[in-house]
Nucleic acid binder design. Structure first.
Lengths: 154, 154
DNA sequence: ACGAATATGATGCCAAGGCTACACTTTCTT
DNA sequence: AAGAAAGTGTAGCCTTGGCATCATATTCGT
């Protein structure tokens, strides 16, 4: 996480708000997106676990993500800190309202990305694999374009 | 960088080689990709600086990327460590043969991704912005599909 | 119901990639 | 040519997200 530069040397203190169309701006944005990716993945997975099995235990989460439980717990801590989740010891993790909304958005986006890749002719396996990384970088504007595109080819 | 797990607890020591089609496998792959993204961006930029201006100084690189020069130098150190670049103090950074190849691949991929986004109907600015993050997650297989797709709509 | 197995949570370690600050070169300007 | 400006490199700090390990808590099977 960039932690607000405030560097005096050679950066004109961009007010952070506008997505300047400069190369540096694009890279900054990409880095910002990246820092959200983890939260998004966890939120989506927790929602999925609740939707299917019923519980989202740290160990389940860790296994599904391919990390150790310690890593999962650390991420869950961050989710709690961000107000996206709560957890009762030995009772699993629960998404807050905000967390649920994030998860829903992420899931919809994931499906759309996979669909678009498939429509373009990407083999199913590759589509699934690449979507996992791509989805986090798909902006709302691009997402809308994806939806329109699918309506066209459907 | 994952640093080879060797965890004994609940992971069956996957030989690292096969891209297993499991969810955990997909996430691992996405993380692996992520760790390459930085090197790719730097290599591409260095090649671009050489192609246009002529020199790739740490400060130029830092400015273009929107980071401080200290950060750029750290990344350059990693590039050197990975055998992708060399540097002569106060004389700029140079890509090795391998670095050049990486840069070329990355650039071609970037252009293709932007083109595909445009073809799908994504506005230019969004296409440029999103491609910056997306490109790193586009596998060779998907890239080939992209190329075929463009031939079709061209 | 109790002991083994499993899950949980807390620590501590590591590397990457941000940052600031400071020292030292090089280059530019006058 | 000398001082100012700009570039370069080093060091130290922070956060994130991996990891292993250990001590507990819970759950399960007999």
């Amino acid at each position: 996480m960039p932690r607000r530069p405030a560097d005096a040397q050679q950066r004109q203190a961009a007010p952070d708000l506008p997505a300047e169309p400069t190369q540096a701006g694009r890279f900054e944005q990409a880095r910002r997106v990246q820092s959200m990716a983890l939260l998004e993945d966890y939120a989506e997975l927790i929602a999925d676990l609740h939707a299917t099995g019923g519980e989202a235990r740290p160990t389940d989460i860790a296994r599904r993500l391919g990390v150790t439980h310690a890593t999962a717990i650390k991420a869950i801590t961050r989710l709690k800190r961000e107000g996206l989740a709560t957890a009762r010891p030995y009772r699993g993790v629960f998404l807050t309202e905000e967390g649920e909304q994030l998860a829903a958005r992420v899931k919809a986006r994931h499906l759309l990305v996979v669909e678009v890749l498939r429509a373009i002719g990407v083999p199913p396996d590759a589509a699934e694999q690449d979507a996992e990384g791509i989805e986090h970088h798909v902006s709302d504007i691009t997402l809308q374009a994806f939806a329109r595109f699918l309506k066209g080819v459907k």
